[in-house]
Design a protein around this nucleic acid. Structure first.
Lengths: 259, 259
DNA sequence: GAGTGGTCTAGACCACGCT
DNA sequence: GCGTGGTCTAGACCACTCT
């Protein structure tokens, strides 16, 4: 099994550079990490897939098991992989638990955690705004898919949300949406489009509710709302989704853990 | 140097439990980690101190260097230690850079990062409220020190802040405050009271400015403000500071990085 | 040059999941 | 029982800092 077969994994594997090449030398485990990330980006391994065992990878890359382990450990810390003793190492997948604890930060004042349900108000294609072009790294004139929805927590309307996606990347989504969109869109991105959301940046500020938002949320215009603008990115750090949520924080608050 | 001398470090070190004791066995590196954390909590090693070398620690604990290394690596990831090749391993300290990038999350709309300056409005002792008792884990009737201040970014008043501290833990602070409080309080807690802020939870919501806040920030009452309530904790995860900041987010927003 | 952390190896044994 | 990841060891060599 140690031969340099001509598949992507093994080829990239044998590119590891040993010291003595001196300039630009990176530790072996970092090179292996990069190589694995490239294979995740390239789709050689998809969410849920089982990776080769540590010994198998060590043989492919021509290093010791400990070196592979260090690479895998760091990738596990970064939530790219999941390791299970006795079973193996797997590519991380999106699931409701991760959606709730990793990507959804509104919790009840009493500490209760609950994913909101969603009602889609509209889903259509239109020309991108300047802001969307910048956020999503689109060319002028490109199209976006805009999803408007309202989200309920505990049966009460709490969030008004607008989601923007590159129409090119997500072609066919408007049609799909006619049969209903799932509550957790990131699973859809992963399964239907092979795009895994891996990290995000959220920008928060306080705003006053517009007429439309007030009507949808059953409050008065001008009522303070928590705006959460999120740029979600894939493994290769390319922007995928721009989402602006305006949340009623009378019964909930946004939680951020430092350290 | 391998003898079991009777100082705290070595004693605790020799408590490591090997397998065979079976029940409740924890990996050696975890036990070493715990032991080091206990010594940080106990003040045996204080911020800025240099730890013994890996070999020295390995000898004290009676394990191999690699096992100590794994403990130190994890503590470094947790920001408790800082390692420098060629110099040694040090207990992490609070510094302006950490204050700005780790604990302060308001950034300009243009992406600029800047620590606000502070003007203390008042600093006095009073009886704790019910909320403070709960947050700071105080007994009924305990006293708190309340610091009110206003913080400017780019010369413009942006944040109205109220800080509550246990009067018992921070005795003498009111007197110190007469000579002026530093802008970054966490350095003060560390240097004068030996209390290191290690982690925090922030709760965010949108609120309407009160009369008082409006006057201080030069806005109209009812204007939406970003409330950031922070519970800051020491290494032993005991609550230390309760801080409620109300921020004008017309020129700034709060940033949260996911992953 | 001495001392420190950073990387890498080779091999041992254990704990767990599967079948 | 076999294959997997998890822990631990002992020792090698490198890179960096300080003196």
């Amino acid at each position: 099994m140690a031969e340099s077969v001509a598949n992507g994994a093994a080829n990239r594997g044998r590119e590891v550079v040993r010291p003595g090449d001196d300039v630009d030398f990176r530790p072996l485990y970092k090179q292996i990490k990069d190589s694995i990330i490239q294979q995740l980006i390239g789709g050689d391994w998809r969410p849920g897939d089982k990776l080769p065992s540590e010994f198998e990878l060590a043989a492919r890359y021509g290093v010791s098991q400990g070196t592979v382990r260090k690479a895998l450990d760091e990738l596990t810390v970064q939530n790219l992989l999941v390791r299970q003793q006795g079973r193996g190492t797997f590519v991380a997948t999106h699931n409701p638990h991760r959606a709730l604890f990793h990507f959804f930060h509104l919790i009840g004042k009493d500490g209760s955690r609950q994913l909101p349900s969603s009602r889609v108000l509209s889903c259509a294609t239109r020309r991108a705004t300047r802001e969307e072009e910048e956020r999503l790294d689109l060319r002028p004139g490109n199209q976006v898919i805009q999803i408007d929805r309202i989200r309920d927590i505990g049966g009460l309307p709490t969030i008004v949300e607008r989601i923007s996606l590159s129409a090119k990347k997500f072609s066919g989504l408007v049609k799909i949406s006619r049969d209903g969109l799932p509550n957790t869109l990131y699973e859809l991105y992963e399964e239907r489009y092979g795009i895994t959301i891996y990290q995000a940046e959220e920008y928060l500020r306080a705003v006053a509710a517009t007429e439309r938002e007030a009507k949808l949320l059953g409050i008065r215009p001008g009522h303070p709302l928590q705006e959460i603008a999120r740029l979600a990115m894939s493994i290769d750090r390319k922007p995928v989704e721009w989402r602006v949520s305006r949340c009623l924080t009378d019964r909930h608050h946004y939680v951020s853990l430092i350290d």
